[in-house]
Design a protein around this nucleic acid. Sequence first.
DNA 1: TTTTATCCAACAACGTGTCGTATAATGTCG
DNA 2: CGACATTATACGACACGTTGTTGGATAAAA
Lengths: 196, 196
Amino acid sequence: MKHQEMREATSRAIMDAFWSLYRDLPVEKITVKAICEKAGCNRSTFYEYYTDSYSVLEAIEEELMDYVRRKLTEELPASLARSFPEIRLDAETLAPLSDMYSKRGEYFSILTGVKGDPYFQYKYKQTVKELLTEMLDDPAKKFDLSASIVAEFTASALIGAFNCWYPHREEYPAEKYSMLLVSLLTNGVLPAIHRL
Amino acid sequence: MKHQEMREATSRAIMDAFWSLYRDLPVEKITVKAICEKAGCNRSTFYEYYTDSYSVLEAIEEELMDYVRRKLTEELPASLARSFPEIRLDAETLAPLSDMYSKRGEYFSILTGVKGDPYFQYKYKQTVKELLTEMLDDPAKKFDLSASIVAEFTASALIGAFNCWYPHREEYPAEKYSMLLVSLLTNGVLPAIHRL
DNA sequence: TTTTATCCAACAACGTGTCGTATAATGTCG
DNA sequence: CGACATTATACGACACGTTGTTGGATAAAA
């Protein structure tokens, strides 16, 4: 095997080992030793790739965020543009989103869950917020605190709702879920409660 | 000083020491040693009160949640009842909330922030969700997944919005903030964006 | 032949949790 | 009131595990 391939393979083995531990344990309980035993590499080797357990988590998050950024700032806007002139929030238009969640759902679910990483939530929300504020007509409003609060409100709501739905995605169809979301976003929470 | 008073004083000194460290550091960087140096007690003494650093955080959260529960399930419903027959979401009616946030705002801000504790967020959301689902007319809906998603959506949104607003509370009046929230809840996000 | 990836063993440093013991203040009971 | 038991805390010591580093060995790749 070539050296470059080996580096990537080892780096990935460490990431995967970390993740399989992270499914069950909080970060602080995950030792470098345990990671290396799972990854099948020497503990010294670990330190040639990462500085500590947390830096593995960061690397995983960074990789995921690259994926998210591609989906949210390239594929989704392109898909929305195709629905021109109106913005149709239907299954076809939102395909990049459902694709993203079906492929990486577990990562989101765990990272934003009870034993997750608040710093990931922060980064994720930042990206969602950027997307939302870019949709504003008036560029001056982008730095407005009200706009910022609305964006944060929305991003948090979407993440929370996803976390609630994801474990039940088998019984509760994705179609129904995204319709509920669209309704919540366009009409507000209070009307939705009375309509339940 | 009486023994009981001493116990409470020591316990509180440890909590306060922990919190003053927690303002700057993530939990995993907070050692029992550092807590005891700040609290001015021996490390052995620490273990007579708590099992580890995390259990101090839990105690702080538990105390805060008791306060939250009292505000949300006693004072707020009482205040809402006084606004009978209509539910007025004005400053006077929402006084228990603004009181809570002005007194414990820093705790919420840090615990639900970037270096915060996702488990606290979970517990906090649970309480908010309980409050929201209790407001439903039809008791059967309480266990409905849709209702649960709407509640989670709302609770997450409120927490996120608060975190965004809190650091700017001096420039951005609480009145304006709560009006924005009421508008977001009753009319939805999308109309609010166009109205910004 | 040189560079590179990994392995291995050993190291000091640090934090952890648990002891046993000491001491002083507090509470109880005759 | 005074003797005794209880309690909160202090102190020092201990074995243990994890950490991050280092120097040297091996084997494959360039």
